[in-house]
Nucleic acid binder design. Structure first.
Lengths: 216, 216
DNA sequence: AAGCGGACTTCTGTATACAAAGCAGCCTGA
DNA sequence: TCAGGCTGCTTTGTATACAGAAGTCCGCTT
């Protein structure tokens, strides 16, 4: 594996998990030393982060980790809604029913686990990622996948703005189950409706649980 | 201006205008010599092209210019439709009426110019780009703008698959006028409908006028 | 004659050295 | 005392040299 790929993955994970919080200056020599590589591959990693919107280049001062604001989250969902709906519609038309039936059952089990108090938030988000991946695969559209990937990257950071409580997680599991079921049944409009409901609730929860906006 | 930026812009324009046709191998040393720069900034330019989807990295063999296929165009429009509709809806809700009234009039004038036989295809596409930019600005959503930019890049190349005739250009001008009018009136659903009609016709024209698919 | 193996060639990936540009801090002059 | 400019220092941007890997071509073997 290339050093620039490792650097990119490492920095990306650090930013997504807030180990490198917004506003952090990513100086080339400093980060290169930290990751044990030279400046050349590090620069490539940084340019990828900038292209992705996770960092911004300040002329003459290096790149800084970009911020996540509440207004930005609203913008994010304005684009997510039509895109996720389109993905769900396509997936419903082209899906393998068995795969989405299985996912629906797993979301039902996850709901039971959450309500019994034994939930693992990390595992739950991994399951959500599985559903997203299954929809992407069923939609079979590289342009859609790429656009979704960009948005989901920013979504991961936005999640940290809200503190998920068990109630919301339980509701979310139910909404995801509905999405999986609709796709499994091959009903595009039902799938789009389920996605609309989920994203609407998700955004509302985010906006309601954030104390104050964080700067950029 | 940085050398890597110039190289990126130059290569991007060369690919979009088919001076570097699909399948062309972009060897680092060769391109660096051609552009009069060293390999380091050239590599950065190439990585940006790869991230954008205009080139693909073949391990051990450099990067090659990606192809445009008819199937790819269908995928492209599957994503364009929901995204452009969303942009039109947002623009209709947030627009400055005067700007879009002016654009509508210019499309009407362009239609008259086309039907009189004095059309300039390049100038017409520039006008279309102006409408796109106005919608982006009115929508005021950076995530949307970025996603659109990616798709439109590929669209520019796809246009070369079809040979535009004056009839299609005339119809296109009318459709764009309808979009501009709908946005000017502040009617989101009307704007989305106008966009749907335009994209549907546009894709149909593309698919009907292409003799055979080009490989990747 | 055809398939396989090895060495050569050429390419990318990485490191480092150099140059240029921006910023900060300080000094000087009014 | 404040404004302006200058110096030096840090930082990025670029070039080049080196190493590793992959592909290719030729020759050998079967």
């Amino acid at each position: 594996m290339r050093a620039s790929d490792r650097a990119y993955g490492s920095l990306r994970a650090d930013i997504l998990e807030w180990r490198l919080p917004p506003g952090t200056l990513l100086a080339e020599v400093e980060q290169a030393r930290r990751l044990g590589i030279s400046r050349t591959p590090l620069r490539e990693a940084l340019s990828r982060l900038v292209a992705e919107g996770l960092a911004a280049a300040h002329t003459g001062r290096g790149v800084v980790v970009t911020g996540v604001s509440l207004a930005g989250v609203a913008d994010l969902f304005e684009v997510r809604l039509p895109l996720e709906c389109a993905a769900a519609r396509l997936a419903a038309a082209r899906r393998d029913p068995a795969a989405f039936d299985a996912l629906a059952e797993r979301f039902e089990a996850a709901g039971a686990l959450i309500s019994s108090g034994g939930s693992d938030q990390h595992a739950y988000y991994a399951l959500v990622a599985e559903l997203d991946a299954a929809i992407d695969e069923a939609a079979a559209n590289p342009y859609l996948v790429q656009a979704q990937r960009q948005l989901r990257t920013h979504l991961v950071r936005a999640r940290r703005l809200a503190r998920d409580n068990p109630d919301r997680l339980l509701a979310s599991a139910g909404e995801h189950r509905q999405i999986a079921q609709a796709v499994a049944r091959g009903n595009p409009e039902l799938a789009a409706a389920a996605v609309t409901i989920h994203l609407s609730n998700s955004l509302h929860h985010l906006q309601a649980s954030v104390p104050g906006p964080l700067d950029a």
